[in-house]
Amino acid sequence: MSTEGPAAEGPAAAAARLTGRRVTGERRLSGTLSEVVLDGGAVVMVKRADGPGAVRAEAAGLRWLADAGTVPVPAVHGDDDRWLVTDRVATGRPDPQAAARFGRDLAGLHAAGAPAFGAAPPGGPADAWIGAAPMRNTPGADWPHWYAEHRVLPYLRQAVDAGAMASAGAAVVAEVCDRLPELAGPAEPPARLHGDLWSGNVLWGADGRVRVIDPAAHGGHRETDLAMLRLFGCPQWDRVFGAYREAAPPADGFAARVPLHQLFPLLVHTVLFGGGYADQAVAAARAALAG
């Protein structure tokens, strides 16, 4: 085991320290992610924090999702302020049966609920992350006002301040926030959300089960997970959503509300990457207003 401190050690040393097992191999996948082989042949994923509190937020989110007993997630083998060690998922190809089961499992995850909109997972920090962007979990009782105040407006302000979005587009998004109570659809209880459910965080397991990774878990509106899953294209989407709809039908008008829920991740992408995401966010805002 390495004698280096946590701030100086690498993925292999971190895995050995956090699991208490000897490391026999390592493969770097990116600047922050590695596969590490432990004695006995088990392979784990070792991830370095993107920012303060990121590991604690992700680990707490994974455990909270796992506690629902619905959508499988990689088991957490160890974590600290800098490093997260989880199972590696052996992946296969998207499968219709797996897609249908995922849809049912996702409905069950949402039904597991949360104490409030914006509630952080137990043990998770209020100052969390969505990808490489900070995300604050502040509880609220009313979804339309909470969504505007804590999921749309903070990223809109950052996008405008950074020059990534023009004032005319920002005005359209602000109008959505003003009209959210009438655009939000029927009131629903807080759902237990993955929170960053784009297709890259959906792994089609070799065992025929879908697993989800890299959550930005919090209490929110279940349609937000569904809209994000649809945003960048999900394999077998029709089967996933068809099974979800059979298990827990969204309220009437869901299709018209999809752009409203996609506004949050599009604004996050605008802040992180700029480019055409601002145009997509404004287009989503216009679509939400049009109903």
Rank of each mutant, 00 (worst) to 15 (best):
A111K: 12
P94H: 08
L156R: 01
V55E: 01
P11C: 05
D127T: 13
D39L: 12
V271M: 02
G200R: 09
R157Y: 00
E4A: 15
W146F: 13
D161H: 10
G69A: 00
W198E: 04
P125T: 13
L229Q: 08
A68Y: 06
D161E: 15
V173E: 11
D105A: 14
R211S: 14
E9I: 10
D207V: 07
T3P: 02
Y147V: 11
S167Y: 00
V210M: 05
A247W: 11
A256D: 15
L29E: 00
A98N: 14
W83F: 00
C177Q: 08
M165R: 09
G242W: 04
A119W: 05
H150R: 14
R230D: 06
I130R: 00
P215A: 08
T19S: 04
D161V: 07
A159W: 02
V55I: 14
S199N: 03
F273A: 12
R136S: 11
P125M: 10
V160M: 10
R192E: 08
A42F: 13
P265A: 06
G40N: 08
H77A: 03
T86Y: 08
D81K: 01
V55D: 00
R63T: 05
R104V: 06
H269R: 07
H77T: 12
L272E: 02
V240R: 07
P215R: 00
D39N: 01
D105S: 09
R101P: 12
V172L: 13
H110T: 15
A13E: 15
S30F: 12
